[in-house]
Each structure stands twice: as C-alpha cells, then as structure tokens.
Design a protein around this nucleic acid. Structure first.
Lengths: 300, 300
DNA sequence: GCGGTGGTTTTTATCATTAAAGACACCATG
DNA sequence: CATGGTGTCTTTAATGATAAAAACCACCGC
C-alpha cells in the first residue's frame, strides 16, 4: 500500500452512519454532494460506493443508486489509530532531548526514532529539517543527523537572545497609546499575579503557566513573525526546564512574581528606563535558574 | 537502484588513476588503507576491487591482489554530474521566488520544482521544511506546500527585526575593550569606505559587497548562533534586492557610504547614543530602499 | 598476537507503487 | 438548449520496498 487509506476508511464509515438513518430502497445524493458533505474528493466517494455495492449494501450504479439493506455495525471498517500529529511529535522529541539529556554530538538514527515516536520515517526527516534552524540539530556531511545538544553555551545564547527580544518588546510597550488593549491585559495579568501571591503557599506550581502568559503578553505587542517564531522555541524550552528544577521552587516563584510586578508597575508608569532595568534583572535570574537547572540535571 | 553509486564510481576512477602509476604484477595496499586513502568505507573499496577483478585489471583476491594490466582511459566509469548542492539550491530557489515574484499563496508542486532545480524530490522536500521557520513557506493541511510570498509586510517585519538585532550589536560594540580585534577591523573597513568614496563615479557597483561586509562586521561582535542564523537570511534577501533596484544606484550608494561613516565615527568615539541614532537612520533608509525596490519590481 | 579479510547487520537515500485529488468531456433530464 | 451528474484520465504526493553504504564481528594466516 502506498498512501494510507485512512481517508477512504473514514468516509466509508461515515457513509454507513448516514445510510443507517435511511430506509431501504431510498435513493442517494449525487457524488458531488456526498463529496462536499464528507469533505473529500469524488474519487474517495466513488471508491466507497463501489465497495458498498460489492458488499450488497447499495444497488445499481450511476444515478440510480439505492439503499439495498440497512448496514450492520460489522460493516464498519477498522481504522488504525497510529501516527501522531506534528505538534505532539515536537513535544515528544523535545521532551526526549531535554529530559534524558542526550549527550551532545549523538548521531540520530532516523528509523529507530521514527519507530520510537510512532511516525513514518519520512515525517521525522521533515521534522528534523524544520528544527535545523533552531540550532539544536545539524546535518552530517553525508547523510544522517547529529544532535548538537542542549549545552550550557546554547542556554546562554538563548537567554541573551531572549533578552534582546524582550527588551525591545518593552520599549515598544511603553510607546503604545493609552487605549491599546494590551494595557487592559497588563492590568488583568497584574491582578492574577497579586492573586497568586496571596495563595502562593499552596499554588506555587501555577506560576509556570502564568510566567509563560506574562512573557507572551509582553512580546505580543511586537507584531513580527520572526519574533513570534523564536518566542515559540524560547517559551518551549523554558517551560520544559521549569518542570525540572524543583529546588526552592516555592521561593523562586514568589521572587519571580515580585519581579514581574515591578516590571508591570514600571510599564504602567510609562517609565521605559526603569522597566528595562527591572526586566534585565528578571531575565538575569531566569537565566541563572535555567543554568543551575541544567547543571543539577546533568548530575542526576 | 536506490542510492546513487556516485561514490562507487568516483572511487573506481580514483583507483584506476592510482593503478596507472604502478607496474603490472605489483601488489596492492590493504583494503583498510585504500579505504582511508580515498575517504570511503571498505564496502566501496571491496566493490571496486571486485569489479576491477572482473574487468581483468586486478588478479587474485584477499591479501594476494596484484595488478594484471595497466588500466586504459576507457576503463573509467562515466559519472553523472546531475544534482546540485544544498547551497546552490538555496540560491536558485530564492532567486526564483524573489526575481519572478511568484504571487503569494501559490501552491508549490514538489515534483515539478524538483525537476526544475535538478534535485531529487526528497532533497527539495527537506529544503522546504528547513525554510519553514523563515516564514516564507507554509505546509498545507493535507500534503503540499504553499508559498506565502515575499510581501511588503514581510519586508517591513524583516527590516524591523534587523534593526533590533543591529542596534543590539552596536550597543555591544561600544562596550568592547580597546584591544578587541573588531576595532582594527572597523578602522580598516572605514578606510575602504573612504577609498570607495574617492572612486565612487566608476565603482559604485562595489558598494553592495562592502555593505554586506560592514553589517556582517557589526553583527560579528555578538557571538550568538540565533543572531548568526538570522543574519544569514537577512543579508541574503537584502543582497538580492540590491541587485535589482538600479534607480539612483550611484547616489543611493554614496549616501549610504556617508551614513556608514557617521556610524563608524560614533562607534570610534564610543558614543553609544549617537551610534544608535545614526544606525537607526541608516536602517530606515535601507528599509525604504527595499520597499521601493519591491514596488518597482512588482510593476515590471 | 596482530593485522587483514570475509561475511553479516544496520541504516539511509532513492525508486516504484498507489491512494487521493482534480480536470475534462460526455450524457441524461428537465 | 441548459444544467447538473457521471465516467475516464492525468497529476501528485505519501509510503513500502530496496539497494548502496557504513559499521560490526568473527575468523584466518602470518
């Protein structure tokens, strides 16, 4: 088999479901209508109709198709639920790389990884290529891939780049007109910070997501596809590391919340210099956290 | 045939060349030595030796291989010089997209493009995936690719991103210690600017390359793989557009040189604020040039 | 014992196959 | 005669198969 016939099977079963609601002898809609209804091409519909004819469920051909007998549950075709989507592949792969700190320079094995992640080798190949620009992966001269690894160097450069983007975002933020929706969002997220600070003893775990949303908000005011693209990578990696370093988590998070609040205050006061300074301090601690988290993890 | 046997053919011919310098009856080096010498695996060497044996050039097997007759030029295997490299593919593709302004939203046809660019479809697929993060291309839901196109929006965002990176580079530059080699490079490139200014009437075409090197120097002080990666894309696109817009080229270039010189002067005076301001002005004109160049090209 | 060779396994790039999508022309029916 | 439907065919991209290349291992001869 070449391409998977998932589409055919799904349409087949959907057609059975439709036919179940009809009386024997009733006529069918036209092929074009069926195709539009199921969101597939006419080719698929025709294949389904032909199979149903062979199975004795439909009778006649062309315009004169009629329902011969009501389909039974057994007529449904089983469909294999293999193959995960691209997003899940990304999550699983990063999880694998970051969690089991694969040593830098490891040669990656396409087929093995493809089996491991339950994707066709082809899809993995494409995924690795798309990761190429993130600097985590390198093409070997003659075939194959090499994992450059998530090294301390990488973390430092990532943090520095993040700082460049985020300081720029803050500069842009302070120049926004007062009626810009971002100001309302900022006030709202400030409330959330205060709220979480109140119940920090129990709910300090919630900070990771709040942190992600806060930084996303800051960067959202920069309408730039390149920034957005990098932001995705950055937040992903920081998010993953947050899940590890459990040391002092409660205190780290409380300190981070307070740092966020000083940034918010400076922004609301339209004090660019102060906001930048506060953000610099916050990003510096964030970078340190990332680095110590990595060191701790390498020992484990 | 699955993989191309280019490697085999090259080794085969290289081996013939080596044998030409030997006398009939002479013994051969070991397989491992030959493999190391030609930079291929033993498998290839063994295949070559077997073929040469079948062709009556070598005799015996294993340790006892001897040269039977001196090979003739006709024994050389022809090797197909198809298939360009990855760098040339990148150049050709960008050239195609930027030059023939393909309308935004065009669906790309893998096989057709692969033929057009003389690469195996597989390689093109991987190339497109690697371009995914540059924002020029998008994966269609069910197979295929869509060219998002080099629109005015794209150019604006690219320019803005460039500005963020470059202003940061300038900030870093002014903090460099006096004995950093970048200062010498800066002085040297300043001389080149002055030199070109002298002979601007004839040689204004040389500016494009000088411009590229100037901006590369600025960014080189930021040791960051993400910056470097983006710098590649940016300089590529700006370089391509420089080749088009011939209107006022002589005057544009002279003005740009003078702008460069003011930036250099501010840097050498360690005046961060002034350098940033000058750079901002320069990048603004550069952006305008890019945009007008695009408008002009769309009319053509 | 050591270097070399033969055989075998693993892995990756390409090829051939096939499902899906779309285009076109003809036919039936009002 | 016009409109909508169907049959046939072409094009395209995903996938399984496959061969080349590299790596591994065990054995042999000196």
């Amino acid at each position: 088999m070449a391409r998977t016939d998932t589409r055919f099977r799904q349409s087949h079963n959907a057609m059975l479901d439709m036919l179940s609601g009809m009386a024997p002898g009733a006529g069918l809609p036209s092929e074009v209508q069926l195709a539009a209804q199921f969101g597939v091409s006419r080719t698929v519909i025709r294949a389904v109709v032909q199979k149903l004819g062979a199975d004795g469920i439909l009778q006649g051909s062309g315009r004169g198709k009629r329902l011969l007998r009501v389909p039974k549950p057994k007529d449904h075709l089983p469909l294999r639920e293999d193959y995960i989507g691209r997003d899940e592949l990304e999550a699983r792969f990063l999880d694998w790389v970051l969690r089991f700190d694969v040593p830098a320079g490891t040669a990656l094995n396409i087929t093995q990884l493809a089996r491991q992640f339950m994707v066709p080798p082809h899809a993995l190949q494409e995924f690795l290529a798309s990761l190429g620009q993130s600097g985590l992966i390198e093409r070997r001269p003659r075939g194959g891939w090499r994992l450059l690894g998530f090294t301390a160097d990488y973390a430092v450069e990532l943090s520095e780049f993040r700082q460049v983007l985020e300081l720029n975002a803050i500069r842009v933020f302070t120049t926004l007109p007062d009626d810009h929706p971002a100001w309302a969002a900022l006030a709202s997220i400030r409330e959330e910070h205060l709220d979480l600070l109140q119940r920090i003893e129990q709910d300090f775990h919630d900070f990771s997501r709040l942190d992600g949303r806060f930084h996303a908000l800051l960067n959202s005011v920069v309408r730039n596809r390149f920034v957005a693209e990098f932001q995705k990578v950055i937040s992903l990696i920081f998010h993953y590391h947050y899940q590890w370093d459990k040391t002092m988590e409660r205190f780290r998070n409380e300190a981070a919340i307070r740092e966020h609040l000083t940034i918010i205050a400076a922004l609301q006061a339209r004090d660019t210099g102060e906001a930048k300074a506060r953000a610099r301090a916050h990003l510096a601690t964030s970078k340190e956290t990332l680095l110590t988290s990595m060191r701790g993890h390498q020992l484990a």
